[in-house]
Design a binder for these strands. Structure first.
Lengths: 338, 338
DNA sequence: GTCTGGCACTCCCACGCGCCGAGTGCCAGG
DNA sequence: CCTGGCACTCGGCGCGTGGGAGTGCCAGAC
């Protein structure tokens, strides 16, 4: 177990390194933080911390920098979440309030997060699987061709074409539309399959094929994971990454374009609060030198999607976590209102 | 006027510089292109070209690199559009054919363009203003609250909430829906305003307010420019930009995030064919060291949106133009089919 | 035991220097 | 008008060097 002072030293190292972006030495530490001990003592502590793998030196006779493990300890034990100041909170609220539709909310959120944290922001569209159905609409485009439109409580609209096995009359269509809505409107996606299971039985034999087709299209739409879209922004902040550019920045940009990767990344964070994944904790190789700070957000008490930021492992964790948490909270409010 | 040979020299300089990314000298030129003259002669030609502002040298006693003006001449007079090879065309077609909906088409197009050109790809969603209405749907969400859903011939769906000044019955709703569709279905957006102008008159006085509200919401949706969304991809290709990274790449990333800027950029290109804007020809400052190659695409003979790529002024213009043109053509086909 | 000051050591980095080579401009002659 | 020759100019690279920040260790103080 590490002594209290050694933890203090680690905290000081992280803070200084985050601030200066340069390896931090024992002398500088004692000058900037009044630890009450001499550089020599700090050196001993540093040796111990290095032994345990919390810090490392890029080369002999250089200062120390935190390792992923060091950041992990810092985040878990040493750093709180820095709350936003009142003006910041007001600014967040103002910025989000002008949004006109869901797309706009997401777009504004991305911008806001990127600006606040000066990092790359990622916002997942409210997920289908946890939200509820507001309305299902069926439109006849041609005798044997329908369009299915699904409207969710978060204001999201999904549409699908349905090719019917047989022509489907306007009367049947109206009937199906009515029955469908009376069963599923207001229900959670997860509950829909069992609610519509026996629906074909209520129709004439000739229409059952079409009804089944419509239903399976609806269910497909509900579960289709790849519909979990997301929006990213603030990539220009990557240029503040480090000095050895191309090598650092490239894999990150590539990873950011792989929505699958990002969705997995966000999906892995099960924590109800703010989740931080540091460096190699990220499965994806291109993100080994980045940290991901994410949190769920939602219109009710429940999270319907995630948002977060991607930045260098050397980031201001307390501030970033505070910003992410605050933005999530306000986005939730906005969604609940609309 | 420049002699034929001097144009050849310019062409050779552009080609070599694009290939090597290094200033090209007189000797190397005569070796790689058989111009039939000696380096000394080429030097004279170069001096003339420099005098005219087509090429420049980074510093005394270095080779020459083309200026924006030089590239312009190259693109206008010296370079054709390099057509895609048959296998490339097949690959494009295969890649686009699997798309399931409009979002997917756009997403695939972006990826494809980015891969083909190894540059940043930008694809504008098919614009509302030039397409036609497939269907308008009205849903009653609450007694005095409607949802308006607009479906376009490109498969795009836009939805808007409408707060009615007075409760609106189901019968009136069905009536309005029917009248609306019979008038505007299949018509071009631009024609819609005059087609629905007198529609309120067909309704009872108590409903006219609501009808007007619905109509104006519809018209708003049609003209709303900021709904011209676009998708970008291949930003990782920016890392191949040059050596002096942060300074070059940053403003470009920033510009790419400003959708307004990009839309304006694409919008400015009026040319029916492939348009090339080189370096300082781009109004936006951040894009002063990039070229934008764009072209319109559409489902019919008519262009409904633009797509293109953003890359360094030092790019393979013939190849890029060929790729952009080919992709636009195939996307048009795909859109026409669906 | 724990902390401290002193000391020798290590290495990175910035700087200055000189060389090399590619490229140029100019000029006289074909 | 083209060509070969020639002197000149610079940027880039390798090298050696000195300074400085930082370390590890040790003996002594509290």
């Amino acid at each position: 177990m590490l002594s209290e002072r050694r933890l203090q030293v680690l905290r000081a190292i992280v803070q200084d390194y985050v601030g200066t972006e340069e390896p931090v030495g024992s002398k500088a530490l004692t000058e900037r933080h009044n630890l009450g001990v001499s550089p020599a003592t700090v050196r001993n502590d540093m040796a111990a911390l290095e032994e345990e793998g919390f810090i490392a030196q890029p080369h002999t006779s250089a200062g120390r920098i935190p390792t992923d493990k060091g950041y992990r300890l810092f985040v878990d034990k040493l750093a709180g979440v820095k709350p936003m100041t009142a003006p910041e909170r007001r600014a967040i609220q103002n910025f989000l309030e002008g949004a006109v539709d869901l797309d706009d909310v997401v777009a504004r959120t991305v911008r806001l997060l990127a600006q606040l944290t000066r990092q790359v922001a990622v916002v997942q569209y409210p997920s289908l699987t946890r939200s509820t159905v507001r309305h299902v609409e069926l439109l006849s485009l041609a005798p044997a061709r329908l369009m299915l439109v699904l409207i969710t409580d978060t204001g999201r609209v999904e549409q699908r074409m349905v090719d019917c096995p047989a022509p489907f009359g306007e009367a049947s269509l109206a009937d199906l539309r009515a029955r469908l809505n009376s069963r599923v409107a207001g229900r959670r996606f997860a509950d829909v399959p069992s609610l519509v299971e026996d629906l074909p039985e209520a129709f004439e034999a000739e229409d059952r094929g079409t009804v089944s087709t419509v239903l399976s299209t609806l269910l497909e739409t509900l579960v289709e994971e790849n519909e979990e879209r997301l929006m990213i922004g603030g990539t220009a902040n990557l240029t503040r990454f480090g000095h050895d550019f191309p090598l650092t920045i490239r894999p990150v940009l590539e990873a950011l374009e792989e929505q699958v990767v990002l969705l997995k990344l966000l999906g892995e964070a099960k924590d109800p609060g703010v989740t931080v994944r540091i460096g190699h904790e990220n499965a994806h190789e291109g993100l080994n030198s980045t940290s991901v700070v994410s949190v769920g957000y939602g219109s009710g008490g429940e999270a319907v999607a995630k948002l977060g930021v991607v930045g260098p492992t050397r980031m201001d964790y307390p501030g970033t976590m505070g910003a992410v948490r605050a933005v999530a909270r306000y986005v939730g409010q906005i969604l609940a209102e609309s």
